[in-house]
Amino acid sequence: MKRSKYSASQIRFAIEKVETGTRIQEVCRKMRISETIFFTIVRKNIEGSVFLNFVG
């Protein structure tokens, strides 16, 4: 399996920012990634039920 380009701290930063109310677009801009990449990272790193909070 290919190793992630993003460290655990970067992934944690992104998830925590969104959970505290920061818009996904702003987090993506700060991390210099697309929204597609953001959702891929989130999907691979958090539980399914929590993922639904980001999508829905």
Rank of each mutant, 00 (worst) to 15 (best):
Val27His: 06
Ile41Ser: 06
Phe38Gly: 06
Lys2Thr: 08
Arg32Met: 11
Glu26Tyr: 09
Arg3Glu: 11
Met1Val: 07
Lys17Arg: 14
Ile33Gln: 06
Glu19Met: 11
Ser49Ile: 10
Glu35Leu: 03
Ile46Arg: 03
Val42Gly: 01
Glu19Asn: 11
Phe13His: 06
Val18Ala: 12
Glu26Lys: 14
Ile33Arg: 07
Thr36Ile: 12
Thr20Trp: 04
Glu47Gly: 08
Ile11Val: 15
Gly56Met: 05
Phe13Ser: 06
Gln10Tyr: 05
Ile15Leu: 02
Leu52His: 07
Tyr6Ala: 02
Arg32Lys: 15
Lys44Trp: 02
Lys2Met: 07
Lys17Asn: 11
Val55Cys: 05
Thr40Phe: 07
Ala14Leu: 08
Thr20Pro: 00
Arg23Pro: 07
Ser4Asp: 09
Ile24Trp: 00
Arg29His: 10
Asn53Leu: 13
Gln25Asn: 10
Ser9Ala: 08
Gln25Asp: 12
Lys5Gln: 06
Arg23Glu: 11
Lys17Cys: 10
Glu26His: 12
Val27Ala: 08
Met1Tyr: 05
Arg3Trp: 03
Arg43Gly: 09
Thr40Tyr: 12
Asn45Trp: 09
Ala14Lys: 01
Phe39Val: 05
Arg32Ile: 08
Val42Ile: 15
Glu35Pro: 11
Ser7Pro: 02
Thr22Met: 13
Cys28Lys: 08
Phe51Thr: 03
Glu47Tyr: 06
Gln25Lys: 15
Ser4Cys: 07
Ile41Asn: 02
Asn53Ser: 13
Tyr6Glu: 03
Ala8Glu: 14
Ser7His: 04
Ile41Pro: 04
Ile41Trp: 06
Ile24Thr: 09
Arg12Val: 05
Glu16Gln: 13
Lys5Leu: 12
Thr20Glu: 14
Glu26Ile: 11
Thr22Asn: 09
Glu35Thr: 14
Val50Leu: 14
Phe51Ser: 02
Gly21Arg: 01
Ser49Leu: 12
Glu47Pro: 04
Gly48Leu: 10
Ile33Glu: 05
Phe38Arg: 07
Phe39Pro: 06
Val50Arg: 15
Ser49Gly: 01
Lys2Asp: 06
Glu47Ser: 13
Ile11Phe: 06
Ile11Tyr: 04
Ile46Thr: 09
Phe54Asp: 05
Phe39Lys: 09
Val42Ser: 00
Glu26Val: 13
Thr22Ser: 08
Val18Gly: 01
Val50Met: 10
Arg29Ser: 13
Met31Trp: 00
Met1Ile: 07
Tyr6Pro: 03
Ile46Phe: 04
Arg43Asn: 11
Met31Glu: 03
Glu26Gly: 02
Gln25Val: 15
Glu26Pro: 00
Lys5Cys: 02
Val18Lys: 08
Leu52Gly: 02
Ala14Gln: 01
